[in-house]
Every structure is written in C-alpha cells, then in structure tokens.
Design a protein around this nucleic acid. Sequence first.
DNA 1: CTGATCAAGTTATACGAATAACCAACTTAC
DNA 2: GTAAGTTGGTTATTCGTATAACTTGATCAG
Lengths: 343, 343
Amino acid sequence: MARKSNTPTMWEVAERAGVSQATVSLVLNNVGGSRVAEATKSRVLDAVEELGFRTNAFAKSLRSGKSGMIGFISDEVASAPFAGKLLKGSQLCAWESGNVILSVDTFNEPELEAAAIDMMLSYRVQGVVYASMYHRVLDVPTALAGIPTVVVNAQDRAGLVSSVFPDEELGGYTAARHLLEAGHTRIGMINIQDPESDLPAGIGRLAGYRRALREAGIETTPRLIRYGSGIVEDGFDLTRELMNEDERPTAIFCGNDRTAWGAYRALESLGLRAPDDCSIVGFDNQDTLAPYLDPGLTTVALPYEQMARRAVELLLSAEKPTQNPIECSLVLRGSVASAKVPA
Amino acid sequence: MARKSNTPTMWEVAERAGVSQATVSLVLNNVGGSRVAEATKSRVLDAVEELGFRTNAFAKSLRSGKSGMIGFISDEVASAPFAGKLLKGSQLCAWESGNVILSVDTFNEPELEAAAIDMMLSYRVQGVVYASMYHRVLDVPTALAGIPTVVVNAQDRAGLVSSVFPDEELGGYTAARHLLEAGHTRIGMINIQDPESDLPAGIGRLAGYRRALREAGIETTPRLIRYGSGIVEDGFDLTRELMNEDERPTAIFCGNDRTAWGAYRALESLGLRAPDDCSIVGFDNQDTLAPYLDPGLTTVALPYEQMARRAVELLLSAEKPTQNPIECSLVLRGSVASAKVPA
DNA sequence: CTGATCAAGTTATACGAATAACCAACTTAC
DNA sequence: GTAAGTTGGTTATTCGTATAACTTGATCAG
C-alpha cells in the first residue's frame, strides 16, 4: 500500500508509525482535540520527522477546494522604481492569512495579461490584486469577472471592484499645510502634468494645495502655479521662472521628487540654496533620491505597502466594492525652513 | 455523475459534449494526434467554450507530479532599488517554458525564510532561484538540499549549487578601458569598500581597473585609489581629495553610481564640471539616477535580467553545478570626454 | 470467409490528503 | 447484567485530471 519515494506521502508516514493514513491526517491537522492518544500522536510526529514528510499542497487544495493562493497582476510594477513595495505589502499580508502570492508582471502586453489571468484561474486563486504602476483610472479586464479582484494604486472606472489608491488631495494638502505652518505665504507649486491631463496624481495634489491655501485665507495666484511633466528638466526650468518673478515665492511645492531635484539645481544655478533661500517640498519619497539630495528632501510618501495590505485585506474579506483612498504621510528632512519674518 | 458548479470540471464538459471525461482530456491535451475524430473534437471544444471550462492546475499537478512552479526566494530583493529586475527576468524565462513563479521575499528573517522554503516544498516547486540583494558569498539554506537550486546575484560558498553573478572584474576592466581609450592616463578610482572588505563587487571592480591600467602599461598609483563606502558623501569627499592632489586625475572611475553622484557634486563645489574638467564613469546604471544626472552618467550596467534568465535556464536544464559570471555592459551617456592632449 | 489491423472511443484507476461514517473495546450508570 | 457512552482509532470515498488498458465496429489482406 505504501511505497518509498523521494517525497514521502501520508501513507508512508502511516506505515512507519503503524497507523492508518487517516490518523496521520488527523494528527497533522490537529482535528477534534484528543481524538488521538498522545502516544500515537507522537509516534506519528516522529515518523513525519524521520521521513521528512511535507504535505502535498496540490492534493490538499484539490480536496479542500481552497488554493491558498492570491494572484498579483501588475503592469511593469516589478521593475518600476518603487518596485516591489506593492508586492511586498501584498505578500506580507497574504502570508499572515496563510496565503501565498502568485505574481505575474504583464509588461503591459495584452496577450501576456490574458495568459496570466488564464493561469491564475487554473490555479484557482482566491482573488486577484490588480496593481498599476502609476495612479490612474483603468478598466479591469473582463476575464477577471468571475473572481474577486481589488485594484491597487489605481481606480476601477466602472466601480465594480474595490480600489485602493493614494489620497493625492490630502497629500497635496499636507505638503502645503507644512509650508504654511512654517510661516510661508508665497508658496509656489510646480505640478507634474498639464491642466488638461486627467491623471489623479496631478489633479489631486494641486487641489490639496489649493484647499490648504484657501483655508489659510491665501488666494492662489495663477502666476505661482506652473505645469511641467514631472521630469528633472521641468523642475529646473520652472523653478527658475518662479524665482525670476517680481515677488519670489519663499517656498515651492513640487508635484514629485524629480521635479524637486530640478528645483534644487535651479536654485543652485541662481546662487541660491534650499531651504535658506527657498523651502522645497516634494512628493513620492523616492528612496533612491529624496534622502540623498543635499539637504535631504522633505516630501510626501506614497503608501505603497499599506495600499497593498489593504488590498489583500479587502480581497479576503469579500466585502462590497469600496473606494479606499489611503493617506500619504509627510517625511521630514531638511528642505523646509521657517519663513523669515519680514522686517 | 456530472454536476453544475461555478467552475465546471471535465465531467461536465464531457456530459455536454456527449463523450467521456477521458475524451475531453485527450482533446484538450491533444494526445496522440487523431485519436479523436474531428467532429468529436470540435463538439468538445465548443462545450469547453460554452461552459468556460478551465483546467484545474491542482488536479493536473497531483496526477502528473509536475507542479509547473518555480520558487523565487529573495532577501529584500523585491524592495531593493533595482527591484524586480531579477524577478522580471526569472518570470519571463519561466513563462517561456510553461512555468510560473512562486515568489517570496524573506526580508532577511530566518523564520520567514524557513517558512518560505517549507511552503515551496509543499507546492513541489521544480526548483528554487535563491536571489541576493547584493553580490556576496552566501550559504544556501540546508533545507533546500533536496531540491534543485540556483543562486543568483551571489555565489554559493560551498559550490554545491550553480551560481550566477555579475562579472565585476570584467566590468571594472570595461570601465577603465573606456577611459583609457578616450586617452586618459591619470585615472583615479574611488572604490566602494575598505581594502579589507571581502565583498566581490569592490574587489572585482578594483581588480579590473588595475588590470586595464597594467595592460596599458600604466602603473597604478596608490594615491589615485581611494576607499569609500559607496555613499554620496564619500564620493564627494574623496573626489575633492583627488582633485586637490598635485597632479589631478583627468578621469575617475567610481565604484558605483551614488559615489559618482558625489563626484559630480564635488566637481561642482570646486567650480569644475564633468566631463570637461574630469571624466566620470560609474557602476550599477541605477535607473533612477544615472540618466538624470547632468550630464548623464556613463556607467556599467549590472545584468540583472540576464542573470535571472540564466538562473532559470540552469534550473530547468538540471546540469551540474557551475559558476556563471555574467558580463556587465557599458552604458554610454555624457560623462566621459577625450583627454586633452597635453600641450 | 476469417483473422488481423485500425479508428475512435470508453472504463477503470491512480495521484495524496481530508473527512464522513463506521467500529471495537472499555467504562460507566442503574 | 446490560444499555449507553467514551476512547481511539479504521475504512471508504471524494476532489479533478491523466493515462493504461480495454472495447467495439469497421476495414482489409489473403
């Protein structure tokens, strides 16, 4: 009945312990408390130990109908700068609930995505975390219709599934508040996209900036708001523009860290320096950049890990679709100083 | 015999097509060519389509003994700066051979690692890619003994399993050659670790630099070789030191990109600029940094993706353990200029 | 006309674990 | 003394697929 193999089965364990396969299963899954005598129990456990038995997840899943796997589909996330943070959060949360992550990066190729979904359906994943590389509004592939799905770092256009994404507006508000609290009143902003663009990041961050100023009783001057595209060069050019205005801002809120890097360079090129001549706040907390700028960049962190954890939680809780903006927190470094009190 | 469920089985497909379950299996796996009549075949395929049948990977794996999964264990790789590049390469290569990646990041926690290995053994992975965050010599966990393993971005101390890692020496050689070919003869190097440190990266890069100079008939002056720890500040300080020597180098090979960034800043602080006053070559091709420096940094790229592909290939080919240094290629940007011919 | 070959399937079983249902031997209660 | 319970297990079956072994009716060579 039992046979020798490189990976022993419960039958082999049972044979060695002198019990039935069912008993081995009962012991290993600790079913019904003391249905098995202590002596037998330890004989079984000894046999398990000696043979190096390891349960076969496939047989277990087949029988139980639970795969214990969660799918993670991303478009290029795995190779994006902030990279595995989403994956990391998902994995940790999945792990805590005894699940395992089956991840596929689709590199934005539709065929790869289709194949990935196919594969995940075959593996009967409990649910799928659908992660986007950047915050956007997207359509969940129809192939995922039959299976619990949560969108992370993006929003589902149709609202059929839950979405978890950064609260950009609050992040922008937080950044601006920080500058206001330092006493600044002439606060510029360099946004990361055209006013016509519909990406949530730029729209939200700008809106938050506006609300903070409005609440502080400061009117937002169009002259102090510039539009770049989130790259270093634009940060450089637009900061120089701002600093050449009649009334220079004493602080600039940059829509992302790369723009802020450009701002640092622009200040330098003008013989100025953050934070003494102009305070700077960034956005993204890019960990290969923000800490290494001189001075370190005060910026707003995107909550990748929390978003991912939340996504997995939502997946496992199987609740109704909800929208979940996640708070972005401020990371203090050295690029903000108190405004000089005008003499 | 067949019953309705959300995920139909082969029995249900068989019932609908009016054939036996075995026939469905034969059709779907295309066994033995024309064992099944075309008409029957298409009836089956129609039924598959109509019911939305998807094979159960668990049953399949249980029956066949092949899991179709490859384990990917990493220590913090998923959240490292170069991030998912290793994962990406592994995934692509695994995918091509019909396999799927089961990845776990252990965050350097031994218990997590043990649990991860346990899980992978349960899922009967075909093999494990054991990835390191940085190039080092490591010991493969003994728990992996029974299962094909390949170490990537590191070297197995015992040499019991294959290792795939960057050819640091050749990379250093390539960097130095590039400067030599531009006519430089006074070439400084800022290494990224102490002379006593035994990390392969610093040792190899320095050795390559030395070989290139030796081959060019230039003696390496200790004065031109400095030792930092791979951080921006050290790049800054040591570059200033080098540039304050009696005979300044006309080019500096920095052991990594962050050091090179520091070098840029140092030059700037001295009123100098790359590449006119001093050429710079980095190492790592850090994609959030090298392209954005001004001028863009000429550097040596670490072949993450190729290493990962190679690792998976080795895993699947089940060959004897081998050591596999992978070539690091030069990425040209704007930080190297021809040496000025002395008047 | 008959035995052999072949096309096109079907039947039965195994993979490894979980679990419902059953059972034997002892206690215990009255 | 016997019905009822308890203890400590066992047996049989199931999950969904792959495949070896068998069947059946037709075709064909000699």
